[in-house]
Amino acid sequence: MSITKMDLKKLAGQAGQYLTRAVQYTEEKLGNAERTEFDGHYETLVKQSDAAKLWTEKLVAGAQSVVIPNPGNRVEDLLFEKLEKRRPNRLSNMEHLGLDMVQAGNEFGQGTAYGAALLKVGGAEQRVGLAERDFVGSAVTDFMEPLQKFLDTEIKTIARERRLLDNKRLDLDAAKGRLRKARNLDSQQAAEADLRICQAEFDRQTEITKLLLEGVRSTQNTHLKHLQAFVAAQAAYHQTAHLAMMELKTELDRKLCSNP
């Protein structure tokens, strides 16, 4: 693959730009160069965006540890997502317990009090375990995945545009420095032209970044709906579990009373 003169010129230009930015950044850190400060509105938007990123990450991680407490299962789910396959619909621990109870009940015999009770309890545990699995699926689909998508799309896009804005700001301040150092009319005119271009690019990138940052606040309404879905799924699970256990307890108490 041949490299044309145009390619070499482009590469040289990019290398020169990176060097100029590095020099400007270093000079600013050393206190030897002035820097353009972002306006207060932009800084406020940045703080709000950073807070949204931080707390959304914490919410996703916290929900994940509650919904999928087994770290091995979390890793397995992540691998399935990377391979663009559906996450495994594995049995819950409660369902496994219910199955063991049913098998034990069959082994001891339905005709025995203990065997019959194990069958009853095992069936109830399986129903509760299934409800738990439904809750996990809803929590992942309706709460965790949308919030993670927000982190993977909007937040990553904002981070990229903020880095680009920082680079445009370095270019602008470097251009201001060249204008201050210009010693003759030709170099001054060239520096002024360069400064106008850098200022326009900086202003344009500032507006683009601000628009993206302002969009973060509007996502809270969407996230509120996801939170409501999470609560509804959790409430449905606990209601199912409560009813199943109360019915089971009533039935077992009645059997114990009739078979002292």
Rank of each mutant, 00 (worst) to 15 (best):
residue 204 R to C: 09
residue 159 A to T: 13
residue 133 R to N: 12
residue 163 R to F: 09
residue 212 L to K: 11
residue 138 S to V: 09
residue 168 K to W: 07
residue 150 F to A: 00
residue 231 V to F: 14
residue 153 T to L: 08
residue 202 F to E: 00
residue 158 I to G: 00
residue 205 Q to V: 03
residue 177 G to A: 15
residue 207 E to F: 05
residue 191 A to M: 06
residue 145 E to Y: 05
residue 187 S to E: 15
residue 142 D to L: 03
residue 213 L to R: 05
residue 140 V to L: 13
residue 142 D to Y: 05
residue 168 K to T: 03
residue 121 V to A: 10
residue 185 L to D: 15
residue 174 A to M: 07
residue 121 V to M: 11
residue 189 Q to P: 05
residue 193 A to P: 06
residue 225 K to V: 09
residue 128 V to F: 02
residue 215 G to A: 06
residue 168 K to F: 10
residue 218 S to I: 11
residue 190 A to S: 13
residue 188 Q to T: 12
residue 187 S to T: 13
residue 190 A to D: 14
residue 191 A to W: 05
residue 134 D to Q: 14
residue 207 E to R: 11
residue 162 R to V: 14
residue 190 A to K: 15
residue 189 Q to R: 13
residue 173 D to F: 01
residue 151 L to S: 02
residue 224 L to F: 12
residue 178 R to I: 01
residue 177 G to N: 08
residue 212 L to G: 05
residue 130 L to Y: 06
residue 202 F to K: 00
residue 224 L to G: 00
residue 204 R to F: 09
residue 177 G to C: 04
residue 177 G to L: 04
residue 181 K to N: 15
residue 228 Q to L: 14
residue 122 G to T: 02
residue 234 Q to P: 02
residue 226 H to N: 04
residue 133 R to A: 11
residue 125 E to N: 08
residue 205 Q to R: 07
residue 132 E to V: 05
residue 184 N to I: 05
residue 232 A to C: 06
residue 150 F to W: 01
residue 219 T to G: 05
residue 197 I to G: 08
residue 199 Q to A: 10
residue 127 R to S: 01
residue 207 E to Y: 03
residue 172 L to I: 02
residue 233 A to K: 06
residue 138 S to P: 02
residue 230 F to W: 14
residue 224 L to H: 09
residue 174 A to T: 02
residue 198 C to E: 08
residue 193 A to V: 10
residue 182 A to M: 05
residue 185 L to V: 11
residue 200 A to N: 06
residue 141 T to V: 10
residue 223 H to E: 01
residue 143 F to T: 02
residue 196 R to A: 15
residue 166 D to S: 14
residue 137 G to W: 04
residue 213 L to Y: 07
residue 200 A to T: 11
residue 155 I to Q: 10
residue 162 R to Y: 11
residue 168 K to H: 09
residue 141 T to S: 15
residue 228 Q to G: 10
residue 149 K to V: 06
residue 219 T to F: 13
residue 214 E to D: 14
residue 130 L to I: 10
residue 147 L to I: 01
residue 203 D to E: 04
residue 148 Q to E: 01
residue 160 R to Y: 11
residue 161 E to V: 07
residue 163 R to H: 13
residue 215 G to H: 05
residue 151 L to V: 04
residue 146 P to M: 00
residue 167 N to E: 13
residue 206 T to G: 06
residue 130 L to V: 12
residue 187 S to G: 14
residue 159 A to H: 15
residue 155 I to T: 04
residue 223 H to V: 02
residue 189 Q to K: 12
residue 144 M to K: 03
residue 170 L to H: 10
residue 142 D to N: 14
residue 128 V to E: 01
residue 130 L to W: 06
residue 211 L to A: 15
residue 137 G to S: 06
residue 161 E to A: 08
residue 140 V to N: 05
residue 146 P to T: 00
residue 208 I to E: 11
residue 178 R to H: 07
residue 148 Q to W: 00
residue 205 Q to Y: 08
residue 234 Q to G: 07
residue 165 L to D: 03
residue 137 G to V: 02
residue 176 K to G: 03
residue 173 D to Q: 03
residue 160 R to V: 09
residue 174 A to Q: 04
residue 216 V to N: 03
residue 200 A to Q: 14
residue 170 L to E: 10
residue 181 K to F: 08
residue 135 F to Q: 07
